[in-house]
């Protein structure tokens, strides 16, 4: 495989070839192993949001979550040849992410909070991205506020319950996949998810009795469904 630095450009949204979009994750990583850079771009497109969603709910810091999301994807690329199709690709990816998150949480417990005095990255290193014309600021605020409330409720679930809970609720991994990712017994996975759900419910109960918020939830769901429909038309 020969990929020069000049070819290292981020994929445009929706730029992946239709053939790659139709492939299973396991087929994509096989192509990455063979040196197809575009296949990795497609993996990034599929997993960046899911990973960030999972990691942010674990670390509660958007910058740290992005860094860990990137770490996970970089490891997927660098260690692509180590993946064997004995488990689903998503299981492998979330095992990497879970290990990175656990290490970070452990480090954070050991070290006091500190402020970096390092200069910001060079301006010319971070290209400017034009804003998405479809983005509506009011929608963004609604979603951010709701996200903040949910994130707060999630953060109050103990970490040992939160990992299987998020893998199930957010990533929709099966119990067996969660077992592989976490190394827990199947019965423990079930009971931890059950306990996490009970705790999560206790923390969001005030939200669940809020009629305005429930109405907002339905509106957001309708918008998301409409956006998904327009994306698939593209």
């Amino acid at each position: 495989m020969r990929v020069s630095l000049s070819e290292f450009r981020p994929p445009r949204e929706g730029a992946a070839a239709p053939a790659l979009r139709e492939l299973r994750d396991e087929e994509l990583i096989e192509r990455v192993q063979q040196g197809q850079r575009r296949a990795f771009d497609e993996i990034v497109r599929r997993y960046k949001g899911r990973l960030n969603n999972f990691i942010l709910r674990m670390v509660h810091d958007p910058l740290e979550a992005e860094e860990l999301t990137q770490d996970t994807l970089i490891r997927v690329y660098v260690h692509a040849d180590k993946y064997r199709e004995i488990a689903r690709f998503s299981t492998w990816v979330f095992t990497i992410a879970t290990n990175l998150v656990r290490n970070r949480v452990r480090q954070r417990k050991r070290q006091p909070t500190w402020l970096s005095l390092n200069p910001a990255p060079e301006d010319d290193e971070v290209p400017l991205d034009p804003p998405d014309p479809r983005a509506d600021p009011s929608r963004q605020v609604e979603r951010e506020e709701l996200g903040r409330l949910i994130s707060h409720a999630t953060s109050r679930i103990p970490e040992k319950y939160r990992v299987p809970f998020l893998l199930r609720e957010v990533e929709q991994l099966s119990y067996e996949e969660i077992q592989r990712v976490t190394g827990l017994k199947l019965g423990t996975v079930r009971s931890r998810i059950n306990r996490a759900r009970a705790r999560f419910r206790r923390h969001i109960k005030p939200l669940l009795r809020n009629e305005a918020l429930l109405a907002e939830l339905e509106q957001i769901e309708a918008r998301l469904a409409a956006e998904e429909g327009s994306d698939s038309d593209d």
Binding site: E66, L128, R143, E221
Partner: peptide, 17 residues
Amino acid sequence: LLATSAPALADGFEWRL
């Protein structure tokens, strides 16, 4: 609620990656 409150990634994620 968990499904609809998925946090959005900051712009330029791919470039930084």
